[in-house]
Nucleic acid binder design. Structure first.
Lengths: 133, 133
DNA sequence: AAGACAAGCGGGCATATGCCCGCTTGTTCA
DNA sequence: TGAACAAGCGGGCATATGCCCGCTTGTCTT
């Protein structure tokens, strides 16, 4: 009872579930929602350092670094050096752009499905509530 | 922009954030919100099999098994055998009950904080929206 | 009763996440 | 200029999660 009302547990459950929707849709491209989202974020301000990206994604820097390494291995991003020799900067590789293009409609599809299931108004509410947390 | 409107990414972000609230509050007890939640769930129907618990938690069975092992190592739960020799059944150990008792008020505190920040009505809305996903 | 089929697990493989420690590179101040 | 101090990372440690394969134990059908 009290458990079912736990914001955290419900959030975790919902996140796993919703993530799997996106993951399924993106599966043909070989990337999951986390990777796809990261690609999008990199594209927005490439070249971008791990630290900056981590700030924007609200993730630990080390997490971003490791995830970036996975994307690099898949040849979706390139990890280079900035002027500052300490900085590792990320840029989208050709294959990465391909994934971004092919993934956009798939991603939109899931998004639309969820909006439809929830109703546009409710979807907006959800966004606001999540942002307020 | 489109990224900020992504249900999934927002959910993931919110989950990480909210989880950390609970984790901080429970830190003195040495357990995180996932473990605490699992303890509560076990207590509700102990003894319970890994498979049953996995269904209830909406988690993969293997995940539950591994998490249970961690709890067992911490001496918070006991892993035994059911009549069916295949089944591994979980029960709360004495230390587990202790954690459950001491954790309840801490958990309530976070819950209340969130309710307060969101407003009771909004909190309820959030619950409903999450359930609808 | 024997063989087919199903249930319940453990462990391997891969990713995701956070925290902390230590190394390298930059910057700043005396 | 040389010595603190700060920034940016990588890698180690631990947990979390899902999927798949293979082993053991039960059940069911012929």
């Amino acid at each position: 009872m009290s458990n079912d009302a736990c914001h955290c547990v419900l959030l975790r459950k919902a996140t796993r579930k919703v993530s799997s929707y996106y993951d399924e849709a993106l599966a043909p491209l070989g990337v999951n929602i986390g990777q796809f989202s990261m690609l999008r974020n990199i594209r927005r301000t490439e070249p971008v350092s791990l630290t900056d990206l981590a700030h924007r994604l609200d993730l630990d820097r080390s997490t971003v670094g490791r995830n970036a390494k996975v994307l690099a291995r898949m040849e979706l991003v390139e990890i280079g050096h900035g002027e500052d020799q300490r900085e590792a900067v990320l840029t989208i590789a050709p294959k990465g752009h391909e994934v971004l293009e092919k993934g956009a409609p798939l991603w939109d599809g899931v998004q639309d499905e969820i909006d439809a299931r929830l109703g546009a108004g409710k979807a907006r509410q959800l966004q606001e509530l999540l942002a307020a947390l």
